[in-house]
Simulated scan of single mutants.
Amino acid sequence: MLPNQVYPVVWNHDRVLLIDQNRLPSEYTLVEISRCDDMAHAIKTMIVRGAPAIGVAAAYGMYLGAREIEATNRDQFLAKLERVAEQLRSTRPTAVNLFWAIEQMLKTARHTIGSLDHLKQALLDAAQRIQQADLETCRSIGDHGLAALPPGKLRLLTHCNAGALATAGYGTALGVVRSTWNAGRLERLYADETRPRLQGARLTAWECAQEGIPVTVITDSMAAHCMQRGMIDAVVVGADRIAANGDAANKIGTYSVALIAKAHNIPFFVAAPVSTIDFNIASGKDIPIEERDASEVYQVGETMLCPPGVEYYNPAFDVTPAELITAIVTEFGAFPPERIQAELSPIS
């Protein structure tokens, strides 16, 4: 049975339920997570993925880890909680929301006074607040993105999946698409398939199909052709980390789309919460880029795509320079990249 609304991370009584995004679209499966080790594995293996969703999952992972801690005093508990945090930090190096959520949970633990049972409950409450805040944030991003788009009926292009599956629900880039659809202004969404893990073909298309949003899947190499033919009015993508100067790391292939959009004078928007902006990093050169297993490139399922004896390179992300970005859409509005530090740094 498929959901009416998509929530990739759900707290259910005493455990977390995750949609297994590795099995979509052929199979809708929920994975039960009741231990921090299992949550770390789920994040690392991309059962849950997308920067905001990873942050929510990590927050619950911190609570699950705290629940397992045996300690006789507060200092001992906090020391063990830091080890839990380090385990979760090691799962995905690029998505800054992971680190942000972990730090929020650590702050909660440090500032909560009372028994260890009270402290653990405070951590669960904090994780649930992070989840609810992200959902509200995405709806605001959607509305601000709609306001920033060109007027009239629109044909939008997106890359990868920055939708409900990648957040607490609703989505960042797909949140903008949803708001545009709900306002009656979306003619069609074009979704890059997004090699090598095919998140556009598998996940973005699946989300749109659940809601009847008109979507056309194209291969990554077709984006330039579609823009040349006048089929795209604007591009909207998400981000896993944004530097202080507005450089944005997103799924590999995003930089190519931005270059093509610039060549065709098509506006290019990055939609992300302020928690995705890392004001401690001056530019995209300092953003760590995760490299994933070569098997993602040389096979799809059980089918081998390449001959034996060749080498592989599989960076999960690339960095789009700020000068290629029309605006960064956040829960507080849409801003030119050069303005985000002045406008948003105090908020974070």
Rank of each mutant, 00 (worst) to 15 (best):
M1L: 13
M1E: 12
L2W: 08
V6M: 01
L17I: 00
R23V: 03
Y28D: 11
D38E: 14
M39W: 01
A40V: 10
H41P: 00
V48K: 00
R49Y: 04
G50Q: 00
A51P: 09
G55C: 04
M62P: 07
Y63C: 12
L64N: 07
A66H: 11
R67K: 15
A71V: 01
T72K: 11
N73M: 00
R74C: 03
Q76M: 09
Q76R: 12
L78A: 05
L78F: 01
L78Q: 00
E86C: 11
Q87R: 15
L88E: 09
S90L: 01
S90V: 04
T91M: 07
A95R: 12
L98V: 03
E103T: 01
Q104D: 12
L106A: 04
L106P: 06
T108A: 10
L119E: 05
Q121L: 14
A122W: 07
L123P: 11
L123N: 10
L124F: 14
Q128D: 13
Q131W: 03
Q132E: 13
A133Y: 12
D134K: 00
L135Y: 07
L135A: 03
E136Q: 12
T137V: 06
C138T: 02
R139H: 04
R139G: 00
I141M: 08
G142Y: 07
G145I: 02
A147N: 15
A148C: 12
P151A: 14
L154N: 02
L156Q: 02
H159K: 04
N161V: 02
N161R: 13
A164K: 08
Y170C: 03
G171C: 09
A173G: 01
L174T: 05
N182E: 15
N182W: 12
R185I: 02
Y190F: 15
A191P: 08
E193H: 03
T194V: 08
R195F: 11
R195A: 12
V217M: 08
I218N: 08
T219E: 14
A223P: 07
G230Q: 11
M231Q: 13
I232Q: 00
A234L: 13
G238N: 02
G238Y: 01
A239N: 10
N250M: 10
T254I: 04
S256Q: 15
L259R: 13
I260F: 09
K262M: 12
H264V: 07
F269P: 06
A271F: 01
S275E: 07
I277F: 04
N280E: 12
N280Y: 08
N280Q: 10
I281E: 13
I287M: 11
E290W: 10
E290A: 06
D293I: 01
Q299Y: 07
G301L: 09
C306V: 14
G309N: 10
G309S: 10
F317A: 11
D318W: 14
I325R: 01
I325T: 04
A327F: 02
A327Q: 15
V329C: 02
V329L: 11
T330G: 02
E331T: 05
E331W: 02
G333K: 06
A334L: 06
A334P: 00
Q341I: 06
A342M: 10
L344N: 05
S345C: 02
I347R: 13
